[in-house]
Amino acid sequence: MRNLFRFIIRYHFFLLFLLLETVALLLTVNHQQYQQTFFIHSANAVSGRMLGVYNAVNSYFELQRINEELLIENTMLRNQHRDNFLVTDRQILFAGDSIFNRGYTYQHARVINNSVNRRNNYLTINKGSVHGIRPDMGVITNQGVVGIVKDVSAQFSSVMSLLHSDVMISVRIKKNNHIGSLRWEGNDYRRAHMTYIPSHVELAVGDTIVTSGFSTVFPENIFIGTIQSWQIRRGEVFYTAELDLALDFNKLAHVYVVNHLFKEEQDDLESGQEAP
């Protein structure tokens, strides 16, 4: 026993290093698994609140631009309003009209922390579980897809940005409905890659890419970006296309959180099919 103590005292620097490093690595590795609640994230009460104060000051400098964006979006929504359409026959339903068949609800939130310069980027938004935010909800803006909610506290949520190595979303080429998946490969935050496009598909520069709506996270037809170039990578049989993202992640201020009303139903059905 004495020898053990002497050993511990003698090598306490190395042993303490091993202990602390193991703790840090365990926290890192455990958390790599998608979605596991823990106190180290910017959605926790202390850091969330402090980032909120910092952002409250900072947001004044953005007001001009945000107002303009909101005006544009308001105009677009006003154009879609039901009053604009002449209803001549009561039996006609408009396909996809949200009044008759509501699939999604949206809720607005402010971005209080954001980054674009890491390999795995996160945002923090000022809405949490008391506002009905739950993990796995999608986050969008009027300009494109932002990310997926990861951790939720009472007042705040942290969101895995599209600029994250674990985020892969299902997308579609608008003109011919071919699907593929979108992933950010880490170089430029204005560019992402769409993979698994079959090589017989004809592509053109400027082709529009939108969300496919296959996952339960994002609604269909959200604009993501346009194709700039494409190639067949060595050892692959699919095209990989490089996209210009429409959304500038560096200027995010306001976002919408998407609530898919039939999410559980669809997830249950799909997971049930996989089970034996």
Binding site: L25, T28, I40, H41, S42, L51
Partner: peptide
């Protein structure tokens, strides 16, 4: 030596809390 390690640990942990980076700054 132990104080050196513990303060580095604390420093990294605060960084991680504010930058959403798991515990990579700590490590």
């Amino acid at each position: 030596p132990w104080l050196l390690l513990v303060s580095a640990f604390a420093l990294g942990l605060v960084m991680d809390m504010f930058s959403n980076s798991l515990a990579i700054h700590t490590a």
